[in-house]
């Protein structure tokens, strides 16, 4: 297994990857060309290295989901995205229909190009010491250029890897009132999430959206506040270990997946909870 570290600065990541058990080699492609993870140059680099590798895999981040289908098409193979389980070297499980069905698919392609949902796998152990090797940048297709990033600065843990996630839905009612969700999250050292309804209503930014069309999370604890539990939202969080739901509507579908449900006004229950944890 070879790890490829690509970026304007990638050496630190490469050194860290070299300690992962099972890694035999780490390639580092450090070049300004890769500074903004643009799809065309990164895909060209991966294709130039594809050689004899049977599997080319990456986590199902927005970056990899941008790049790997391009790699697959350049190699004339299909891509398998959001894979949640490995059956054998050719066969994989992945959710379809917004998580309403699980499909087992067998690839007939010689090379498999795959993105994995990291929330359903345990991290590999460390303790290895693989060789780290610098490689030259590949050609620059010069088709796109980076303009700017608008990334929210936050001390909170990253949503998809957080141990605890506190999410708010339409029931929160406004952007100002979302603060009560954030306060509970900060007390718990949690990431903040939101339902699509809350994002569409402008209560929370896009990148907080949990669900099939947003982020898929599987924390140890997921606290859903004022979220009804539309199937698209459930697809993004139902693999959480413990789900707590607070909603004033006792018929809300979120209670069907919650381990602990509380029918209550979130404006009373959430601050009270923040106080007590």
């Amino acid at each position: 297994m070879t790890v490829l570290a690509v970026g304007a600065t990638a050496k630190d990541a490469a050194d860290e990857a070299a300690t992962i058990e099972g890694v035999s080699k780490v390639l580092v492609a450090e070049d300004a060309l890769y500074g903004h993870r643009l799809a065309e140059p990164t895909a060209a680099l991966i294709v130039s290295l594809a050689g004899d590798y049977s599997h080319i895999v990456a986590p199902a981040t927005t970056d990899a989901k941008n790049i790997l289908p391009r790699v697959a098409a350049l190699l004339d193979v299909m891509v398998l995205t959001d894979v949640t389980s490995v059956v054998d070297a050719d066969t994989f499980e992945r959710p379809v229909y917004a998580g309403n069905a699980m499909q087992t698919v067998k690839s007939k392609d010689e090379k498999k190009v795959i993105t994995f949902r990291t929330s359903t796998f345990d991290a590999a152990a460390t303790g290895g010491s693989a060789a780290v090797e610098d490689i030259a940048a590949a050609e620059d297709p010069a088709l796109s250029e980076w303009v700017e990033d608008k990334v929210a600065e936050s001390d909170r843990p990253e949503l998809t890897s957080a141990k605890i996630v506190v999410s708010g839905g339409r029931g929160v009612g406004s952007e100002e009132d979302f603060v009560i969700i954030e306060k509970l999250a900060d007390k718990l050292g949690a990431a903040v999430g939101a339902s699509r309804a809350a994002v569409d209503s402008g209560f929370a930014p896009n990148d907080w959206q949990v669900g099939q069309t947003g982020k898929v999370v599987a924390p140890d604890l997921y606290v859903a506040c004022g979220i009804s539990g539309a199937i698209q939202h459930l697809a993004g969080m139902k693999d959480s270990k413990i789900i707590v739901a607070i909603n004033k509507d006792e018929e809300a579908p979120i209670f069907q997946v919650a381990d602990f449900g509380l029918v209550a006004d979130l404006f009373e229950a959430v601050p009270a909870l923040t106080e007590k944890v």
Binding site: M78, P95, A101, K108, I243, G261, L262
Partner: peptide, 27 residues
């Protein structure tokens, strides 16, 4: 097709949880 669909299944269901009556009970 390059991919053979071996099987399509219902997603695993979560076991039903419990309803609690207060924030204290929830904590």
């Amino acid at each position: 097709p390059r991919l053979e669909i071996v099987k399509t299944a219902e997603p695993a269901e979560r076991a039903a949880g419990i309803m609690v009556g207060s924030v204290d009970e929830l904590v």
